[in-house]
Structure formats: C-alpha cells, structure tokens
Amino acid sequence: MLKGYNLMTKIYNKENYLDEEFVEKMSIIQFMKLLDKKDKRIETQIEVYGLEEFLYYTGKEEGIKILKKYFDKGIDYLSNNFAIIKIILEQKISVWNGKPIIKYKNEEYPLTNIFGTSLKQQESEFWTANTNINS
C-alpha cells in the first residue's frame, strides 16, 4: 500500500489486506476532527469509513468543500509522517467522461474535486492519491 490516500471497496479491503495492520479505524467525521487539531497526534495507518454517506448528507458541493478544507489542514502532518490512509468505500469508483466518481443513492460525486489530480487507478477497486491533494 502506498503512502497517501488509498481508496478501495470493502470487498477489496477484505480480500487483499489484513485489517490488523491498521492501528486506527474511524469515521470520516472523526478523521476530519483529528486533522483540525493544532497539536496533531494521528496514527500513520488509519482506516476511514463513511465518505459516501458524508457527501450524501451534507450535499455534494458543501461536502466536497468541507472535506477539502480539512484535508488541506492535514497535508503537512500526513506528508511529513508518511501516513497511509485507507478510505473504505461502499461502491467501486467509476470513470465518467474521463473523471473518477463514486455513486451513492443516485448521486455522483467527482473524486478529483476532493483528492486532486494525483488520484490514479491501481486496480479495478483500488485507487491512490497523494496526501497533498493540491498536487
């Protein structure tokens, strides 16, 4: 697994990775709260759940705006500590008009708006992105 964000489905995670390797499992809300702290002490191997639900319930534009704000706050800490963050998704990422998206409850969410242009497909249910989402 690569340093940075590793987006994968639950099924892919279960089939390919042992969950014991990851010290901390948390919701996307908990992850954003950790990134918001001034004195960050974040484990460098984290599993994060609930991205689709967060985007759905906050609304596409607002959800993306909020995620980018918190992910921006974590760039230096996560990059300097070589963090590996697994983002566990309900559905696999699709490509629509050349851009990766996730679909949830009949809504589509463009992932490059959150993770930047470094988001790359590694396998059918596994994508990676740099912790510096602005690169």
Results as ranks from 00 to 15, higher is better:
Y12E: 04
E43P: 02
Y5C: 07
T112Y: 08
Q30Y: 10
L55R: 03
D36K: 09
I66F: 03
F71P: 09
S135T: 12
Y77T: 05
K10Q: 10
I87L: 13
I11D: 11
I133F: 14
E21S: 03
G4M: 05
T128H: 01
I133R: 11
N130H: 14
S124T: 12
L78W: 00
M32Y: 07
I42T: 08
Y70C: 06
N130R: 05
Q121N: 11
G50A: 03
K25H: 11
N80L: 08
T131G: 04
K120S: 13
K10Y: 12
I87V: 14
L67N: 13
F82C: 04
I29S: 09
Q30I: 06
D76F: 02
K68D: 05
S124Q: 09
K92L: 07
K60C: 03
S135R: 11
L34R: 12
E15Y: 03
I133V: 12
M26S: 07
F126L: 14
T128G: 03
K3L: 08
Y12M: 01
I87K: 07
M1K: 12
L7I: 13
I75V: 11
N130T: 02
F126Y: 15
T112E: 14
I11F: 05
N130M: 11
K38C: 04
A129V: 00
E43T: 07
I42Q: 09
I93M: 04
G50W: 10
K65F: 04
T44E: 00
V48G: 00
E52W: 01
M26N: 06
E107I: 13
Y56M: 07
T117R: 09
E90T: 09
V23R: 13
L7R: 04
N97V: 02
E61C: 08
Q121T: 08
Y77I: 10
N134G: 15
I42L: 14
I29A: 06
Q91F: 01
T9K: 01
N106C: 09
E20R: 00
S94L: 12
I75K: 05
T58L: 10
K14V: 06
G74K: 03
I28C: 04
N113M: 10
L7A: 14
N81S: 03
N81P: 01
Q30P: 00
E53T: 06
Y17M: 03
P100D: 10
G98M: 11
I29Q: 13
T128S: 04
K103P: 00
Y12A: 13
K69H: 15
L119F: 09
M32F: 12
E62R: 14
Q122G: 02
Y5K: 14
M8E: 10
S94I: 09
L34N: 15
Y17F: 07
L2Q: 06
M26G: 10
N130P: 00
I93K: 03
L55M: 00
F71D: 08
K10F: 05
I75G: 11
E107R: 15
F115V: 02
I42V: 14
I64D: 11
K33S: 14
G116Y: 05
N6V: 02
F115E: 07
D39P: 03
K25N: 09
Q122N: 05
Y5P: 08
K69S: 13
Y104S: 08
I114T: 04
K120N: 05
